[in-house]
Design a protein around this nucleic acid. Sequence first.
DNA 1: GACTATTCATAAGT
DNA 2: ACTTATGAATAGTC
Lengths: 237, 237
Amino acid sequence: MSKKTLHLYLSRSVSLSTMNNKKVKTTQGRQKIDIKKIENISNRQVTFSKRRAGLFKKASELCILSGAQVAIIVKSPGRRTFAFGHPNVDSVIDRYLAGNNSGAAASQTCFASNYPSEFNEHYAQISKELEFEKKRSTMIEESKVAYGGGLWWDEPIDGLGLAELEQYAAALEELKKNVAMRADELMLVKAASVPSSMFAMNPNVSSDGLGDYVIDQANDFGDSIVPIGYDFGHGHL
Amino acid sequence: MSKKTLHLYLSRSVSLSTMNNKKVKTTQGRQKIDIKKIENISNRQVTFSKRRAGLFKKASELCILSGAQVAIIVKSPGRRTFAFGHPNVDSVIDRYLAGNNSGAAASQTCFASNYPSEFNEHYAQISKELEFEKKRSTMIEESKVAYGGGLWWDEPIDGLGLAELEQYAAALEELKKNVAMRADELMLVKAASVPSSMFAMNPNVSSDGLGDYVIDQANDFGDSIVPIGYDFGHGHL
DNA sequence: GACTATTCATAAGT
DNA sequence: ACTTATGAATAGTC
């Protein structure tokens, strides 16, 4: 690999020296990689984050475009769990487990994560219609903002996403109303981390519970997050 | 849309007539679309299929590259269920539901699908190792390395594999029988891992023409499929 | 189901 | 984190 890298560097150097253009290749651009475990830790983490986000985005698009229901659970090597679901994780899973295909789907996209125990069943279901709509129009630039702040998932999370949470909370209110009317496409939520305490509450939220969830609104797709914080001590994936 | 289409056609026509090159644009290539429900039925079905495959592939790559565990359940609008899982769907889901991170994971990539009722639990565990083997020979040999070398789940997990493989082998036997009966389309796992795909069998498949499984080995990733056919009458997703 | 022409996702590099 | 060049996914067609 070092050899390859060297080669690449040389190529670039050549380009730089031989080409007398304004357009200088500053990077090699995307390189082809073979699909095998990435040995370099930090690299692996970065890839994990990027690709998980990409996966969720794809899932989101699939839901919207085709009207499908999707649930995804991802566990990082470091034991953190991320989930994506439309209409929501649990309903899809439940149905899967039961083999039950009846029932109408709720219209929302929800994300959840890992908890130490079984609070699972009830956690929130929320949808992000608003964000989605809003975002759909302004789409691009927000991502950066949303993302800014470091890898959300790898820190103990705490007071982050203050403004966002607030904003999010407000959005939820509206959402509640709209949600009843809406139906399928929506998605979104970005992630901020949520203090575990937020999550812990609400042992049993009824259907429109609000409350605890955290969301990540990075892109125009829904993403999810880690509510539970019981394991945060590890500091990484 | 018709307008747009017209435009595009015209553009192509112009290109054809004005450009006197060998290189004639035969298609428009990928077009940008906005993420909203596709109204055209057949189009939606096609997109669903393509994107679901893409999603599973991405998931597969994520698992391999980062060592993550992933489970995905997808329900088509037509109520068919597709699932992807690594090490396998159920283990990931179970863990998710229980919030339990202990336990070793099975060492396989598996796929399952929907059943009319609750035969679920028992759905077949079979894999298409055969296909895989066949492919593996022509494809890549790193599978073992990749798999063995990287603990999929680096930490709680440990040396699993052996027993599992054995079990897996047994499952294969069954698969061989069942495979002949039904399924849908499945894809293959590539290098990674111990590829195994499981799919549920269905006790009663009705007619519908869809045949049964197809093993699609187009790509290098594993995919899963629909065993059950109770709903095939619809003729589509 | 297979083919391009394109858009999209992202590995590297900064 | 941000950019960029490039590999990949895929919309439209046949």
